[in-house]
Design a protein around this nucleic acid. Structure first.
Lengths: 226, 226
DNA sequence: CGAATCGTAAACGGAAGGTAAACGGTCCGT
DNA sequence: ACGGACCGTTTACCTTCCGTTTACGATTCG
């Protein structure tokens, strides 16, 4: 069941679409205004966003930007305006598709399915298909590979990353790290960890705003999801 | 196995009914007086209440109101009085059915089954199929799962929710929480709890008007049913 | 009705996190 | 031993987060 956030002020239309989409295994949450939509995005995860452009209180394209600022979730713009410029600007702001109203719901479904298929997140991840971790450590050579490319790490970076790989998916505190990693002196400031984490993130191209690999757990430490 | 609370001062009758109902997969707890009944409701969950109207110490209709005040549990009134006004008042006070004594136990069973069926909580999901709780906590990874999706919680939210999970189905006071949750300062206003509860409810998509997971117990605190 | 309680949006501010830059110790090769 | 490359550490500054308070509407109680 794919989860979709629909930001649409015409609540009746939203209801109809919701019902229709549900028949195609797409679950929707409807919100009538963009601020609600953004806060919804902050608290729940969605596979896709359907965004109406003519919204109260905020320009639709602005909403698009705001969404893109906090997540990479696919966006389908639906709009009564069908001028080329709107379309272009929308797609430039980060939308994945642009659907001029009125449209046939079937087209909407088709486009959604297509986008979800393309990015491989239709919400029904096959059976137990286990995809290989991007981060892997070779116990013989003591090298760490990222997407099968060897990483070039300093001693402290290596120490932290290997420790976190051994404790994958767990929250690792800065204290844990400072005591367990040889290349870091125990009497150092905890802030050193932050700096080295930052450097590792950079080498993993991990955007700290929306980290994929090393996410910080406020007040506790960091968690690695390899 | 549906769980039913029977408030009935004729203990012999209660015993007989209990036995009978048990044959139809209905488990009952008997209490002879209304105060015991209400406190039982505060501490345990029931699928339905059978309430005798001629009770010692409190008017039956008053009991009905009190029950309705703290829960939406279905109520079947059973009464020796069979005047129309009693019946009407009873149903107005929130009862779901009214059964004049004497009645055939078979009718009682039929009515109970009917009510449970209507609200989709007959307590017997398949055979021994264990209903999995929607909320689950993994203490290793410090994550709480909701319908098998990990929740993104802040420290205070996590603290409150995990505490309430440890005390599931009990009423937890704001004082308990403020004292037990690290992320909340003890000197804070109790109102902070309300706000964070509200945020948790939102993340659980729990409608506060008819909460499924976190219900407030006026004047006492909150109760979590995972 | 008024008073108490609850729900929650909004705003605030202290604390935590991100990271660039500077600093300084260690390890080289020459 | 000298100078420089390397890198762990500290500092400083900025941003973001989130617990808390406040305010107001809704609901409930007596």
């Amino acid at each position: 069941m794919a989860k979709v956030l629909m930001i649409e002020d015409d609540e009746e239309l939203a209801e109809i679409l919701s019902e229709y989409l549900h028949r195609f295994n797409i679950e929707t949450i409807n919100v009538p205004d963009p601020f609600l939509g953004l806060s919804e995005l902050d608290t729940h995860e969605f596979d896709l966003v359907i965004l109406d452009l003519s919204l109260p209180g905020m320009d639709g394209l602005e909403v698009c930007e705001q969404i893109r600022k906090r997540s990479d979730v696919p966006i389908v713009i639906s709009s009564a305006r069908s001028d080329l410029t709107d379309k272009i600007v929308g797609l430039e702001k980060g939308a994945d598709d642009y659907l001029p109203k009125p449209y046939d719901p079937r087209e909407l479904v088709a486009r959604i399915k297509s986008i979800l298929r393309r990015i491989g997140r239709d919400g029904q991840r096959g059976e137990d298909e286990k995809k290989e971790a991007d981060l892997r450590i070779d116990s013989d050579t003591k090298m760490i590979y990222f997407k099968n490319e060897p990483l070039h790490l300093t001693a402290a970076e290596y120490g932290i990353l290997s420790y976190m790989l051994e404790h994958a998916n767990e929250v690792v505190s800065r204290e844990d790290l400072i005591y367990s990693v040889d290349a870091i002196h125990e009497e150092s400031s905890l802030k050193s960890i932050d700096v080295i984490i930052s450097r590792i993130r950079h080498k993993l191209s991990d955007n700290p705003k929306h980290p994929r690999y090393i996410r910080s757990v406020r007040g506790l430490g960091y968690r690695l999801t390899p």
